[in-house]
């Protein structure tokens, strides 16, 4: 379900081709699609990687592109390497670092949020909504991302149907409009029900999921080598 990026017919043909079972017709169609739609190529290479992985033939994962983008992200991170390499870099790079780094980080976040919201129909929901003030907590309030900047963030607003609200943008809008309340984590869990597009809120499910996340975090904390740090993922409030 999650992997149906291409039209199902193409995906099936791709899959058939992987198994050497594609018909001549399918092959032609794929080749044609390849030119028109670069994603077919991406999917093809992903299938190959997956297949190689399953057969244990994978020397090194992913594209060099992936690694280099991660390297770039690290490079952009605001720690200061002791390697003289950094200092020796051309001035222009340094400059672009200085200017672009924060932008890039935030842009990436923002885009991830927006993209995720648009993609809700397929898989992922956006769960972390901004909190409402405690006294109004019983109002089912989430702030859509695209609210005009002059709408106060904590004003209760019903989610328009089919609209997923990335919390991030809501926050940025609010910050720009001078909203000053301290951001807080909310325990509210929204989820995307199977075969539906928009995330929904159900109090029982939210409580249930939060409790299980804490139980899971015991596992994460004992078995992933980072001590108690995974508990940052559990939202601790007075409620419950």
């Amino acid at each position: 379900m999650t992997e149906q990026i291409q039209p199902p017919v193409l995906a099936e043909s791709l899959s058939a081709l992987m198994d050497n079972e594609a018909s001549e017709l399918e092959l032609q169609r794929l080749l044609k699609a390849l030119d028109a739609n670069p994603e077919v190529k991406t999917t093809w290479s992903r299938y190959q990687i997956a297949s190689a992985g399953l057969k244990g033939k994978l020397p090194v994962m992913a594209s060099g592109d992936f690694a280099s983008r991660i390297s770039a992200a690290i490079e952009a991170e605001e720690t200061y390497s002791q390697q003289p390499v950094v200092a020796a870099k051309p001035e222009v790079v340094k400059e672009s670092n200085v200017v672009a780094v924060p932008t890039s980080w935030w842009q990436q976040l923002g885009r991830a949020a927006v993209a995720a919201s648009v993609a809700g129909a397929l898989v992922v929901g956006v769960q972390q909504y901004q909190t409402v003030a405690p006294q109004t907590a019983e109002i089912a309030a989430t702030t859509p991302a695209a609210v005009p900047a002059n709408v106060p963030e904590n004003k209760a607003a019903n989610l328009p149907s089919g609209f997923n609200a990335p919390a991030l943008s809501a926050r940025t809008v609010a910050v720009q409009s001078g909203y000053e309340s301290r951001p807080q984590e909310s325990r509210r869990v929204m989820y995307v029900p199977r075969q539906e597009a928009a995330p929904v809120y159900n109090e029982d499910i939210s409580i249930y999921v939060n409790q299980l996340i804490q139980e899971h975090t015991d596992n994460a904390s004992m078995n992933s080598g980072q001590g108690m740090l995974p508990y940052t993922r559990v939202i601790l409030t007075e409620e419950e």
């Binding site: 992997e3 990026i5 991406t42 992936f66 390297s71 051309p90 672009a100 927006v114 992922v124």
Partner: peptide, 29 residues
């Protein structure tokens, strides 16, 4: 950028500008 497709598994869906910025830095570094 509004992307009509699910971006989870396809890095090619990353916004182009972001990619090119990254590749630029990646090249330099």
């Amino acid at each position: 950028l509004i992307e009509p497709r699910m971006p989870t598994f396809i890095s090619a869906n990353l916004p182009r500008r972001c990619l090119s910025y990254f590749s630029f830095i990646a090249l330099c570094c």
